[in-house]
C-alpha cells in the first residue's frame, strides 16, 4: 500500500474525529482541545502536501496563539457552570443535521465531479505540463519572494487589518477609568 495513503488516512481520520468532537462535547474546554487535535492533524496533512512552512505557521498561529486565547477566555469567564444550564443545542437540531449532510454530499460531489470534467477537457499537452508543475516542490523561498513582490499590497493591507484589530480590541475591553460621579 502507498505509504502516503496510510499517512493521509491516519491524519484525515484524526482530523474528522477531532472536528466531530468539537461540536459534540458539552464543555467548551474539551471542544477547544479537540480543535487543537484537528489543527495538528491538518498540519500533518500540510507536511504531507510538501507545505512545510505553512504547517509550521499553522501550529504557531492556530495551536500556539489562537487556541491559547480561546482557552484563556473560557477560563476567564469560567463557563463550566454556564453550559450545565441546558439549552445547549438549538430546537431544530434534526433539521440542521439533515441540511448538513446534504451540504456534505454536495461538496463531495463537486470536488469529485469538477475535477473529472477538468481532466476530461484538458488536452494531453496541458496534462503533461500540469504533471511537470505538480512535481515541482514549493519552497519557503518561493512564498517569501511572492509575498514581497507580486503580493506586497495585500501583505501591507493585512498588517493594517491586524492594527485595526489591535485597536478594536483595546477599545472593546477597555474599562472606564473615570470614577462614576
Amino acid at each position: 500500500m502507498n505509504p502516503e495513503l496510510i499517512v493521509f488516512i491516519i491524519f484525515g481520520t484524526v482530523s474528522i474525529i477531532g472536528a466531530i468532537a468539537v461540536i459534540s462535547f458539552r464543555h467548551p474546554i474539551y471542544s477547544a482541545l479537540s480543535l487543537i487535535v484537528t489543527f495538528f492533524s491538518q498540519a500533518g496533512l500540510f507536511v504531507l502536501l510538501g507545505a512545510h512552512f505553512v504547517a509550521a505557521v499553522q501550529v504557531i498561529v492556530y495551536a500556539g496563539a489562537i487556541m491559547v486565547l480561546f482557552l484563556f477566555v473560557i477560563m476567564l469567564l469560567n463557563l463550566g457552570t454556564l453550559s450545565a444550564k441546558g439549552a445547549l443545542t438549538g430546537k431544530l437540531k434534526g433539521v440542521a443535521i439533515i441540511l448538513g449532510i446534504l451540504l456534505a454530499v454536495e461538496g463531495v460531489y463537486i470536488a469529485v465531479r469538477a475535477l473529472k470534467n477538468d481532466t476530461a477537457v484538458a488536452s494531453d499537452a496541458a496534462k503533461e505540463a500540469a504533471a511537470a508543475l505538480a512535481n515541482k516542490p514549493i519552497e519557503t523561498y518561493d512564498i517569501g519572494r511572492l509575498l514581497f513582490s507580486d503580493y506586497l499590497l495585500p501583505f501591507e493591507v493585512t498588517s493594517l487589518i491586524l492594527l485595526a484589530a489591535l485597536i478594536g480590541v483595546i477599545v472593546l475591553v477597555k474599562r472606564d477609568k473615570q470614577p462614576e460621579n
Binding site: 474546554i29 512545510h52 509550521a56 495551536a63 491559547v68 482557552l71 477560563m75 519557503t140
Partner: peptide
C-alpha cells in the same frame, strides 16, 4: 536536520503552555 528547524522549535515551544493551562484548569 529539517529545513524549517527554527520554526519547528517556535511551534513546539508554543505548545508547552497547554500543559500549564490545562493542569491549572
Amino acid at each position: 536536520d529539517i529545513n524549517i528547524g527554527i520554526l519547528y522549535i517556535l511551534a513546539i515551544t508554543s505548545l508547552g503552555v497547554y500543559g500549564v493551562v490545562i493542569g491549572a484548569w
